[in-house]
Simulated scan of single mutants.
Amino acid sequence: MGQVVTFGEIMLRLAPNGYYRFFQDDQLQATFGGGEANVAISLANFGIDVSYVTKLPSNSIGDGAVSELRKFGVDTKNITRGGNRVGIYFLEKGASQRGSVCIYDRAHSAIQEACVDDFDWDKIFNKAEWFHFTGITPALGDNLVEICEIACKKAKERKIKISCDLNYRGKLWSREKARKAMSRLCKYVDVCISNEEDAKDVFGIEAANSDIYGGHLDKEGYKSVAEQLKEKFDFEKVAITLRTSISANDNNWSGMLYDGKEFYFSKEYNLHIVDRVGGGDSFGAGLIYACLNNMSEQDIIEFAVAASALKHSIEGDFNRVSVSEVRKLMCGDASGRVQR
């Protein structure tokens, strides 16, 4: 099995303890996180050879981010060093009817100011079998759209599978800019990952009979969303996470996979959430792992959803679970009983 390469921004995550609001407490927990880094760490925990690509400054905070990735066994040799700062995001975890709040402080970060010459994709893809990025990375600027497109072209030349999580972030760019950039990039993508909102926000493709803010999600409506995405970009697979949000703490969680012929729905999990940040990334990592291991279509979506369900029980961005733990849940042991 070849290497998986992920590309994006790893940030410093600053969050109040527990469910405190900003400045209710005089402490902030400092950890790291970011979409593609989260995927890389999940895959490393699953035993996959994975390389993470970004640009980080040559200072103690940049060193800390690299050390954190290495701790999990992620290959960091292709990280470019330079620039002035590491991006930051502040997270206030929601509870009950109060939603979580994410505030970005990532302007002028090293990766945001990266240039095309910072990345040698022929070298980066030397051992690669799979390339993954998200819609967050091109949202950082026109330069990142260009860099992502060059990476995709190089991956295509080498017949490397490409996956992309649409991951629309309205605080980073407009729907119009997202649609233009992602339409340009998605023509290279083999596996598209979306949630119940992203397809609508990025491409205007909406599921009928669903009201995500009112807590009603009609799963059947997402068949049409997947079909339209497939028709528009000729994806090999479209995977959609399906979240019914009862409150900030309690969600129903499942997923759907479309291979162009059949639709596959996972079982649904009732989640009592510890930390939902990184939930979609853990789904993406589970999907990639299952595809690389040639699982059946039904098992691919079951593994991805089970991996992500477990992530919602773990503090921080990273999904700290093993393949055996995911398989245990996937096969029906969702009791949460003490293991002795």
Results as ranks from 00 to 15, higher is better:
Ser58Trp: 00
Asn59Val: 03
Ser60Phe: 11
Gly62Ile: 09
Gly62Ala: 05
Gly64Arg: 09
Gly64Glu: 04
Ala65Ser: 04
Ala65Gly: 00
Val66Ser: 06
Leu69Pro: 00
Phe72Gln: 08
Phe72Thr: 00
Gly73Glu: 05
Asp75Thr: 08
Thr76Pro: 00
Thr76Gly: 02
Thr76Lys: 03
Lys77Arg: 15
Lys77Thr: 14
Ile79Met: 09
Ile79Val: 13
Thr80Pro: 00
Thr80Gln: 13
Arg81Glu: 12
Gly82Cys: 11
Gly83Asn: 11
Asn84Arg: 12
Asn84His: 12
Arg85Gln: 09
Ile88Lys: 05
Ile88Glu: 01
Leu91Asn: 05
Glu92Lys: 07
Ser96Val: 11
Ser96Lys: 15
Ser96Cys: 08
Gln97Ser: 12
Gln97Asp: 13
Ser100His: 02
Ile103Ala: 06
Tyr104Cys: 03
Arg106Gln: 08
Ala107His: 07
His108Gln: 13
His108Val: 00
Ser109Tyr: 06
Ser109Gly: 02
Ala110Gly: 01
Ile111Cys: 01
Gln112Ala: 14
Gln112Met: 15
Ala114Phe: 04
Cys115Glu: 14
Cys115Lys: 15
Cys115Leu: 07
Val116Leu: 15
Asp118Lys: 09
Asp122Ser: 14
Lys127Pro: 00
Ala128Tyr: 07
Glu129Gly: 14
Trp130Tyr: 15
Thr134Trp: 05
Thr134Leu: 08
Ile136Glu: 05
Pro138Leu: 09
Pro138Gly: 10
Leu140Ala: 11
Asp142Lys: 15
Asn143Trp: 09
Leu144Gly: 05
Val145Cys: 13
Ile147Val: 14
Ile150Arg: 15
Ala151His: 08
Cys152Glu: 06
Ala155Ser: 13
Arg158Ala: 12
Lys159Ala: 15
Lys159Val: 06
Lys161Gln: 08
Lys161Tyr: 11
Ile162Val: 14
Ile162Asp: 08
Ser163Asp: 01
Cys164His: 06
Cys164Gln: 07
Asp165Ala: 09
Asp165Lys: 13
Asp165Pro: 02
Asp165Val: 12
Leu166Val: 12
Leu166Met: 14
Gly170Ser: 14
Glu176Cys: 03
Lys177Met: 05
Ala178Val: 01
Ala181Tyr: 11
Ser183Asn: 11
Lys187Gly: 02
Cys192Thr: 02
Ile193Val: 14
Ile193Ala: 04
Asn195Tyr: 09
Asn195Cys: 06
Glu196Gln: 14
Glu196Pro: 00
Glu197Phe: 10
Glu197Gly: 00
Ala199Asp: 00
Asp201Leu: 15
Asp201Arg: 13
Gly204Asp: 01
Glu206Trp: 02
Glu206Thr: 13
